[in-house]
Amino acid sequence: NQESVVAAVLIPINTALTVGMMTTRVVSPTGAPAEDIPRLISMQVNQVVPMGTTLMPDMVKGYAP
């Protein structure tokens, strides 16, 4: 099972992602793949992402898996 990126903390809208904001988990439906964490760092979210929420590609500005 592939791990997806999950918010480790509450991420406010327009916040640039840091490694400490993200964790990985096997979830369904799958979100952004765990191996993309290095690409996701410094990208901004376009909505509030509550802690424990799977990071879906459409939540991150300019990100395409």
Rank of each mutant, 00 (worst) to 15 (best):
A34Y: 04
T15A: 12
T54V: 07
L10S: 11
R39H: 11
T54W: 00
V26T: 09
P33F: 06
A7M: 07
P29R: 05
Y63P: 04
L55V: 06
T53W: 11
P38W: 12
E35N: 12
M51L: 11
V19Y: 14
V49E: 02
D58G: 13
T24G: 08
P12A: 09
A8K: 12
P50W: 09
N46F: 08
T23H: 08
M22Q: 08
S28K: 11
L17A: 06
A32T: 10
V26N: 12
D58T: 13
Y63E: 03
K61E: 13
V6Q: 00
M56V: 03
V5C: 08
S28W: 13
P57L: 08
N1D: 15
V45R: 00
K61M: 13
G31P: 01
V48I: 14
S28G: 02
M22H: 07
D58L: 05
T15D: 03
P50C: 10
P57A: 10
V49W: 05
Q47G: 04
G31M: 00
N1P: 14
V49S: 02
V19W: 15
M43T: 02
I37A: 00
S4D: 02
A16S: 13
T53V: 11
Y63L: 04
K61G: 06
E3I: 10
V6F: 00
A16M: 13
G62E: 07
R39S: 06
T30H: 15
V48K: 13
T18K: 11
P57C: 09
M51N: 05
M43Y: 00
P33S: 05
D36I: 06
V45H: 02
V26C: 12
I13G: 03
S4F: 07
M51V: 10
A32F: 15
Y63T: 03
M22W: 00
I13H: 06
T15L: 06
S42Y: 07
V19P: 11
A64S: 15
T54Y: 02
N1Y: 12
G52H: 07
V6S: 00
P33E: 00
A16W: 12
S4M: 06
V49F: 06
T23N: 08
P50D: 08
T54F: 00
I11L: 00
T30P: 15
L55H: 03
T53M: 12
